[in-house]
Write a protein that binds this DNA or RNA. Structure first.
Lengths: 228, 228
DNA sequence: CGTGTGCTTGATTACTCTCAACATCGGTGG
DNA sequence: CCACCGATGTTGAGAGTAATCAAGCACACG
């Protein structure tokens, strides 16, 4: 299925936005669309790294399951994010859809050739990779934050920011795209601790649960204080 | 001080190794050498991001100090590593030498222009950035590892690998380039816990302390088992 | 010497994990 | 229609681990 860049929601933010019309058109001929339902797997760790993709809409997780079967979420991938190993023969992590998602899929070889031919694309990917690196390091710093409460507060804030389309202000009420287990995996906690911290935040009047997944932030200032 | 690429220890592994002789020569004219003693600061968080650098020899840390004054080490930078924000106006983290270090320093603007002119350099940096991203995610996965013992065991193994020049096999005896406090900051633990775990490893006959910083790995198999 | 830094060790506290039970919701099949 | 089941989430009691608080040791340096 040929790509339709005209109506692409990340037309101006994804790596390909660095290309001019003609180049983009050429890249578009190489790619195809794919949709994923919640829970569908894009890559398994250990797969051959023969495709890469730009996320169009939805939400993905990059995860690692250890020997005991515990899943640790290494990163979330938001729209305009790029996934796939460009310089390694195999995928190193699982990549799974957290919500119904849509992405532009490319053969890795094709994409590498495109990088060769369009230096602007290489620079755009470098920029994005640097950004991802920064976010991964933020995540590491977050892990150092004392207390499960601070981690949860931080996560809620960041999900609220992602839930609103505009990057400038966060949503006051939204649905968590993650199960308790996924939140636990993302923060290095257990399901029970996540659940307890959430009820604690509710008891303290910082948030209100508007459903099993729904959240309303009733006291943003205190939430920010808790997040450190 | 003009760069001497001929004798550079990372001539074949740093980003600039992607350039041909002529291009490298041109890049070399833009850069200068700098040496750092242990503890010397290359960047402070919040500094204007006007230089970037390739590490030639030595060891750096990328660190973040939180509101309480606790330092969390986000990453170590080994020779051939690249530091400096290419796409952000300010440095986001402290970068400090852990051992006497030598690096090639470039004005950020100059380097950005070089990236524009030498697409191979952009690709090499992209490759390196991807590698750093992978390592950052490994670090996140490490944080999830249960038990301080596993973290310490892992750290010792990775430092042993870095201590030997060849990437294929690790050193059996070496000096830790990090203080207890730095190890604690890297692993998200306290100094006391690090100290206790190290004496525990010694009591169990897994390692021997050959000095305040010296380490000999006496039972590599068990160390590997402990690291998970 | 005295001082400071890095390291170790001990006692206590606090937090999260673990194990376990129960609630809720949707789907399935008798 | 109702009983059952699996997945998800909540709550409780107890155990275990690392943080905290507090000394003390070794060594380098002025």
């Amino acid at each position: 299925m040929k790509l339709h860049c005209d109506t692409c929601p990340v037309r101006d933010s994804a790596a390909c936005s660095a290309l001019d019309e003609e180049q983009r058109e050429e890249l578009a001929r190489l790619g195809s669309h794919r949709t994923l339902e919640r829970g569908e797997v894009l890559f398994h760790a250990g797969d051959e790294a023969d495709v890469c993709a730009t996320l169009n809409s939805g939400l993905l997780k990059i995860a690692h399951v250890d020997a005991d079967g515990n899943e640790r979420i290494l990163s979330l991938v938001h729209p305009a994010g790029f996934v796939g190993e460009m310089f390694a023969p195999v995928e190193k992590h699982d990549i799974v859809a957290l919500t119904a998602s849509r992405l532009c899929l490319f053969d890795r070889r094709d994409y590498e050739r495109a990088i060769e031919r369009f230096p602007a694309l290489a620079r755009a990917l470098l920029r994005r990779s640097s950004q991802d690196l920064f976010e991964a390091r933020e995540q590491i710093a977050l892990d150092a934050r004392k207390g499960a409460g601070a981690k949860i507060a931080n996560l809620i804030r960041s999900l609220a920011r992602a839930a609103s389309q505009s990057p400038c202000h966060s949503a006051g009420e939204f649905d968590l795209p993650l199960t308790r287990g996924e939140m636990a995996g993302l923060l290095g906690l257990t399901i029970e601790t996540v659940s307890r911290q959430l009820t604690r935040l509710e008891k303290d009047g910082v948030i209100a649960k508007t459903g099993p997944r729904g959240i309303r932030i009733t006291d943003p200032a205190r939430l920010a204080a808790l997040a450190g």
